[in-house]
Deep mutational scan, measured.
Amino acid sequence: HNLTITQGKLFFHYNPKLCLSEIHKMEEVSGTKGRQERNDIALKTNGDQASCENELLKFSYIRTSFDKILLRWEPYWPPDFRDLLGFMLFYKEAPYQNVTEFDGQDACGSNSWTVVDIDPPLRSNDPKSQNHPGWLMRGLKPWTQYAIFVKTLVTFSDERRTYGAKSDIIYVQTDATNPSVPLDPISVSNSSSQIILKWKPPSDPNGNITHYLVFWERQAEDSELFELDYCLKGLKLPSRTWSPPFESEDSQKHNQSEYEDSAGECCSCPKTDSQILKELEESSFRKTFEDYLHNVVFVPRKTSSGTGAEDPRPSRKRRSLGDVGNVTVAVPTVAAFPNTSSTSVPTSPEEHRPFEKVVNKESLVISGLRHFTGYRIELQACNQDTPEERCSVAAYVSARTMPEAKADDIVGPVTHEIFENNVVHLMWQEPKEPNGLIVLYEVSYRRYGDEELHLCVSRKHFALERGCRLRGLSPGNYSVRIRATSLAGNGSWTEPTYFYVTDYLDVPSNIA
């Protein structure tokens, strides 16, 4: 807008934040220059609390790290170098490059900038070799853009010569660093050979998330399962459950009422301010606690030095998902009996873990797994792929695949051998790939016309006998059925096997 004052003059007093240069501009645009008398524009009460600059400061050096910015700028000295009290560095987070010096300023003089007072450097006698002032900004957020400017702080001049310097606002972004852990990993099994893994992005990506790394490792069953005799009275049979499938998407929606109208769909109840505040506090606490764990609990591995020492970490090797089922080394339970199943799973520490690289999504279907087997899954978020990966501390989750139908069934015939004193040795093959492992066998036998009897055969007993022995049988026709019990439950009964026990007292003698 054009402003013209045809008559009258300007009068400025007691404006401590208004620089004289701005008042002189007002004289020019209003056409009143030359009308004012000496005392109409006070030299001592206008701009006496402001830094009124008329020179431009330029930054000469900028260096960044993930949490620091090192700045240096060209030296500046007023005509009387004693008038320079120091520099004021202003900075704040700036997602967009549209910041002005006066953003967030209120009537009390406060604003949204963080201000650092910096002492002037030592003055050199040689004007050509003056030290460049600077400042190291610490405690910054990774991968965050900051708006920065600097200006001088000078003393009051009796001659009211307006001098000083100020830089333009520059924008500097800190470097990326390792992201925080992925949030809320959930693993479920939808079949006997697959596990579905879902997660949420890290709360602090500290860069642009480029991919996720998912490692999985087959877990050995508890050692007590191999040692305890679950045929003993009072000892509860062990059981394991597989990871249940995901709930429906509708039930997972946030901010939804727990109660549904019987007449149909209901609208979600909005969260109160107290609920939102509580969630923010919980989120802040979780982030602080995660940072504490990362800094205190997890110790970084030592990389190899120039002395030739090897990095103890196993090298990563990509495998196809079809090879995942046989990740671990199978060892027989008892070496003397080769027909026992290889369900003991000690994992070799030198073995390469299978892994998958996930790009542009937060889910993965891990296939080719062994049925009813526990897996430990390790999830890392990465925001750099080359020249070397920059990934987060791992988040861990466990899951067990679903049982395989008929995996616990005894394959092959049940054979028998009759000894003296009416002892019958029953023999059968253990299931080759049971659900988890076989903890015991149930032997059901009966003599024709009598009630059915049951015998429990422990895992250890089966390994020693290759089956079991029935003792003290009365003469007669017998039928026997056997079924295995694994961590997933009972298998199917075998087809009945028949044998006849004679009275050993009636056996004919070869003595003449």
Rank of each mutant, 00 (worst) to 15 (best):
V439S: 04
Y230L: 12
N383A: 08
Y448F: 15
Y375C: 03
S223V: 07
E404M: 12
C391N: 01
T303P: 09
E495N: 12
K302Y: 14
D503I: 02
S274R: 11
P431T: 03
I438Y: 03
V359G: 07
S474W: 12
T340I: 14
D503M: 05
V439N: 03
S305T: 13
D408T: 07
G472Q: 08
H425I: 11
P332Y: 04
I366H: 01
E433I: 15
P270V: 04
S268I: 15
H425V: 15
L225A: 08
D408K: 00
T386W: 15
S304Y: 08
K271C: 03
G207Q: 00
E227W: 14
E451M: 14
F226T: 04
G491H: 05
Y396M: 15
T386Y: 10
V324R: 15
T347N: 03
T347S: 12
R240N: 10
D291P: 02
L277Q: 03
A394I: 05
D222P: 14
S458L: 07
C456E: 01
L237C: 06
T272G: 03
F298H: 02
N510R: 07
C391P: 01
S492I: 12
L237T: 03
A309M: 15
L280E: 15
R400A: 08
Y212V: 05
H352S: 08
K302C: 05
N510S: 11
N208A: 06
S342Q: 07
P314R: 06
G412N: 05
H416W: 12
V480M: 12
R376L: 15
S474V: 13
S283H: 14
V334C: 04
E388K: 04
G306Q: 06
D323G: 04
I276Q: 08
V480S: 06
R390P: 11
R286A: 03
G325N: 08
K233L: 12
C468A: 14
L369G: 08
C269S: 05
S268M: 14
I410S: 10
T241R: 11
Q429L: 08
T272V: 04
R301P: 00
V331H: 15
L470T: 04
P387K: 10
K317Q: 14
D311Y: 15
V331R: 13
E217G: 11
F499R: 01
G368R: 11
N383C: 13
N339P: 10
E227V: 13
C468R: 14
E221S: 14
N421G: 12
D323M: 15
E290W: 02
P205T: 08
T386A: 14
A335F: 13
C391V: 01
W428S: 07
C267L: 02
V345F: 05
L440E: 09
L228N: 07
D323W: 12
S458M: 12
